[in-house]
Design a binder for these strands. Structure first.
Lengths: 214, 214
DNA sequence: CACTATGCGGAGTGAACGCTCCGCTTCGTA
DNA sequence: TACGAAGCGGAGCGTTCACTCCGCATAGTG
């Protein structure tokens, strides 16, 4: 019986050693990019994985394709967290998913700057955001979040936390949690309205489209 | 009488044409880096300034030195805003300086990622932060900010806003203001405490030290 | 005006890096 | 075990980019 290790089911099955090497490359890339940023050269990734450069390029046609695969995995994780949060009671799912994705961001520091835009990633991201916005609506219904909060405010939280994670990289993990706590506190129902108008949905869409434009 | 155009007073006076070219280089760098990021090549800066590459390198020994000078100017602006805010009444100076520096960040998008660490910049930055923390204390005294807010939370605001500015670059200016409003709202006196502990001063110091380590 | 220190331009250099190519090796099958 | 398809390593290519070098130009003085 033929082994069934496939690359996302779309291509021919890889030989056993090739499949192993592919995984070692992904692991090495996740580690190295996390620790030292996306600017590390591909030869370093190959070295850490214990394979040649040629092997890397047979499995991933470009460096971008390798990063893209890592980003896709991050969105997979996001989506798992979001699905889980859908069953939280009392509108608490929003906070659950925000802290959950924050933790994922914090442990994937290297992939922060370029959140890819290929078809597959786009689908995952759209689904993740759909759930996020649903959870925001529920949180509002339960009075945990102020009525004048909008979907785009969640994107702001994401970009803010991402900025803090990138800055505090390798020194502390408390930074992003504190940021998250402050921003959630700022979105709690309160007497006075916020001092600034939210981003329009069009602007957000444009920003996300630019996200992997280099 | 000899012209007195000097480079921060420390070196011999430049010839008039050289001083002009130096300023054109700084202006060009500010524009180009703002619009297209720090990855733009030095030859592009020289082209926009209307001078040769050699001229650029006679005035600034490395590309980093050029960026560093821009960053220094940004801190100059920060300090001016902070000084101004010191005379605001009723503990409102903090919000004034936060929105002020946010606006400066937003109009200097290119210098966001690497906030330099040479001696001169360090002095400006320390002075700016000293004032910022003084204004936080006053804001607390006037009951505008919660008692359990700490100095490090202001650094978090800065890094968050910087992340949002970098992400929304060129699309909208409302993003960072909304972020600022949400975070300030989160730091208003409130019933329940924040869900996360603040960063330690040591961690903050370490992060700032790493800031231009590349 | 003449003279020199200062400044200028831009071709060229070296290093870094993404990526290719090809001779050799290994897996998996029959 | 024998064989071919698949995989492997890494030298080397082309490009990009920060930076240098040097022959020519010009400002500013006496």
């Amino acid at each position: 019986m033929k082994s069934d290790v496939r690359v996302r089911g779309s291509e021919r099955a890889l030989r056993r050693d090739a499949a192993e090497n592919r995984q070692r490359l992904l692991d090495a890339a996740a580690t190295v990019f996390s620790e030292r940023g996306l600017d590390v050269g591909v030869d370093e990734i190959a070295r850490v994985a214990g394979v040649g450069i040629g092997t890397l390029y047979r499995r991933f046609p470009t460096k971008d394709a390798l990063v893209s695969e890592l980003v896709r995995q991050v969105y997979d994780d996001f989506l798992a967290v979001a699905d889980e949060a859908l069953s939280a009671p009392d509108g608490e799912g929003l906070e659950q998913v925000l802290y959950g994705t924050g933790a994922i961001l914090a442990s994937n520091r290297g992939c922060l700057s370029r959140m890819w835009n290929d078809d597959e990633t786009r689908i995952l991201r759209d689904e993740y955001r759909r759930i996020l916005f649903e959870l925001l609506a529920r949180a509002k219904q339960h009075g945990r979040i102020r009525e004048d909060a909008v979907d785009a405010d969640l994107d702001l939280i994401f970009w803010s936390v991402r900025g803090v994670v990138a800055t505090t990289r390798g020194v502390t993990d408390t930074g992003w949690r504190r940021t998250m706590a402050i921003m959630i506190a700022g979105l709690r129902p309160g007497a006075d309205t916020l001092d600034a108008s939210p981003m329009s949905a069009q602007h957000v869409a444009q920003i996300i489209d630019n996200m992997s434009a280099r």
